[in-house]
Design a protein around this nucleic acid. Structure first.
Length: 227
DNA sequence: AACCAGGACGTGA
DNA sequence: TCACGTCATGGT
């Protein structure tokens, strides 16, 4: 019995496919998930369907750094309204307009710079898939953001570790309190086959589970039968 | 009315 | 390396 695979199976049975990454404009969005307004597409792995959606995922990954997705969604809608949810058009609007649009997602001074620098990088790729190291060289892109972009925008089977994952894994003693990012990442990648659909679902399921059971201490993880 | 949210960077030791 | 301060809005 593998604890990691067991965890994934239990979460999937309990919550079902999560339909990440949320996108603004598509049919069949599922507004019922915790904390979401719209944007999910449970069971449909055909996204991103365009380079525009691919770019939207990357931008969202940066905007959601230490920020609730509901606030990111406001920022994305503002960018769309400003006709700037496209790499060349985003670089076309001026600094103040960009900051004003992304204001709801917080840290707007830093994030405006992050978006510009990432967008320059995105265009330089000319449609090609970036390497993880290339992404990490971009100012404002750290380990989690790089992995989120690779996994959800480019369908590269790399596991995303976030604060929720760390919280759950620590509580279930699958890692220690001060395990490094790469260490926790390996916990999953060594135990589950490198399948981008599974990695997408697993990460999204951990977020959903954490929102339900790990919001306030002491944690009561009834699903995993732990105190 | 503090506290936190799908982090990353700069600094000093 | 690593711990700590900083960045900022919106919901609870």
């Amino acid at each position: 019995m593998n604890k990691i695979r067991d965890l994934y199976q239990k979460l999937l049975r309990a919550y079902g496919p999560q339909g990440w990454w949320p996108l603004l404009n598509h049919k069949g969005s599922n507004p019922t998930k915790t904390g979401s307004v719209t944007g999910y597409h449970s069971g449909d792995y055909s996204f991103p369907k365009s380079q525009t959606q691919q770019f939207e995922i990357c931008i969202g990954a940066i905007l959601t750094q230490n920020t609730a997705w509901t606030n990111v969604e406001k920022a994305l809608l503002n960018l769309q309204k400003a006709n700037a949810l496209d790499p060349k058009k985003l670089l076309g609007i001026n600094e103040d307009e960009l900051k004003e649009a992304i204001k709801p997602s917080g840290y707007f001074n830093q994030k405006a710079r992050k978006l510009r620098e990432f967008t320059e990088f995105f265009l330089s790729l000319q449609g090609k898939t970036p390497t993880r190291n290339q992404l990490l060289e971009v100012w404002g892109v750290g380990p989690e953001t790089a992995d989120s972009i690779l996994l959800y925008a480019y369908k590269v089977p790399t596991f995303v570790v976030d604060a929720y994952t760390k919280r759950i894994f620590t509580h279930l003693k699958l890692c220690t309190e001060k395990s490094a990012y790469e260490e926790m990442k390996q916990v999953v990648e060594k135990n589950i086959k490198k399948d981008w659909k599974i990695y997408q679902e697993f990460h999204a399921l951990l977020v959903e589970h954490a929102k339900r059971c790990y919001s306030k201490k002491p944690y009561e993880d009834t699903l995993m039968h732990q105190a």
